[in-house]
Write a protein that binds this DNA or RNA. Structure first.
Lengths: 249, 249
DNA sequence: CGTCGATTTGACTAAGATCAATTTAGGTGG
DNA sequence: CCACCTAAATTGATCTTAGTCAAATCGACG
């Protein structure tokens, strides 16, 4: 029985014209899905050595804990994204991953990945591209933390998340749900929960976002993008081109 | 006449056992060096399309300007590092590069890189590794900006730079010179120059660093690493292993 | 009904920014 | 050699942003 193509492969193919054989080999390496509960840490070490994941469904995030309990969230990931690939490549484990919602994940073992690159070299180039794109997002996040005010950071991050999610079809009725509690958003933005909450208020009053028990909902992405002065170019997304597959909302 | 191996190739080889043919092809693609003056922006577009650089000598940094003049420096780069590779791969140009000192650079054209990956697929894996390592550094920087105090940030960044520089043989008599004025350090750390200067003072008084006209000099890296609680694991450097080639100072 | 985590609000504090001089040190021209 | 210029470094005074502490509220769920 033929199965639908894994989300990670679909995303790679948007960029690199992968041959059937390559896509097939990658699909074989991805194998079956594991289920993970919401709000749990993901294991990066299995019985067979280091693993990374390709997300099939659900949201997760990468974070780093400091010794004294402070925590910085590095980025959010969902269907089509990869988790821990860098860690797998570098053989270090400098940070951790945690689910926000229940997730369906493909395991990626280092051994399999190495074999894959040896047999299908173009896959290395494709993964290289995926990694470059992830890094562009991290860099933009870094710029926000270094030089933008709380309000600007929040606006930019919500734009980034909503644009990415929308471009992968995760918008519901024109709205994008970010299934993260405020504690998590605060740790991503380098803010205290209290200050995040206060920064959020004016945005809620203007109808840009809404807080629901299941997470924050971006109600008016267009206006948010405009008010935040957000430029989605670094995402490789083209929101103004209705003919482009990434056109959203 | 045989020339010494470019620094970038030497660095790749530390990690991936590249065959002679691969190293030779990469060396051919790198070609001759360009000279760049200190304190000048690097062009990312040439007559032949987008270019990136592999640094042979000198220091440079990647930065992003915001509309209103604020600036965030993303990272510092020197011999063996690459500049603009991500931009080249993604075909976007979301930030810029500027030299600190006079630099000797190899140009890397997109066309050449694509041909290289097609002919020598293991090079794609090697570059993938280099990119992963760069990203680990960016992530650590991001954590600093989000959750560490000015003093902690400064300590960590100096450790990172000094460890990296030392591991590539850029230490002089046990000291590492970071050829950056305080304005640049401040923009990297997300601080004002005034506050950076004040944060620097206690470190100078304790003899950890020194300010000289040509830049900041890290005098006692060991103590700095200890006081900052810096863990160089994410750099892929092993300072405590005298047998390892990365052993420093 | 009670509990627990998440959210919200108020009052106060602190880290770091901003503004405004002043000093320093190299480099330049005379 | 000296006067002068400029970019960088330094210092003081004041202001703002965001953090901390503490308490109250809310909502889902057993």
């Amino acid at each position: 029985m033929a199965r639908a193509q894994p989300a990670f492969i679909a995303r790679l193919r948007e960029f690199e014209g992968l041959a059937e054989a390559e896509a097939g080999a990658l699909a074989a390496a991805l194998g079956d899905c594991v289920e993970a509960e919401g709000r749990t840490d993901l294991q990066l070490e299995g019985e067979e050595g280091a693993v990374a994941y390709a997300i099939e469904a659900g949201w997760a995030y990468a974070y780093k804990d400091l010794e004294d309990g402070r925590r910085q969230i590095v980025g959010f990931h969902f269907a089509g994204d990869t988790l821990g690939l860098r860690t797998l490549l570098l053989r270090t484990s400098d940070h951790a991953f945690r689910t926000l919602t229940p997730c369906r994940l493909h395991r990626l073992r280092r051994r399999d990945l190495e074999g894959l690159f040896a047999d299908h070299p173009r896959l290395a180039a494709a993964v290289l591209w995926a990694l470059a794109r992830d890094e562009a997002i991290v860099v933009e996040h870094l710029v926000s933390l270094g030089r933008r005010s709380a309000e600007e950071r929040l606006g930019h991050m919500l734009c980034e998340l909503a644009c990415r999610a929308a471009s992968r079809g995760l918008a519901e009725a024109g709205a994008v749900r970010v299934p993260a509690p405020q504690t998590v958003l605060a740790d991503a933005l380098g803010l205290s929960v209290v200050h995040l909450n206060r920064t959020l208020r004016p945005m809620r009053e203007r109808g840009l976002v809404e807080i629901e028990p299941t997470g924050l909902v971006v109600r008016d992405l267009g206006r948010l993008v405009e008010e935040a002065g957000f430029d989605p170019a670094f995402l490789g997304i083209y929101p103004d081109d209705p003919d482009h597959p990434d056109h959203m909302l």
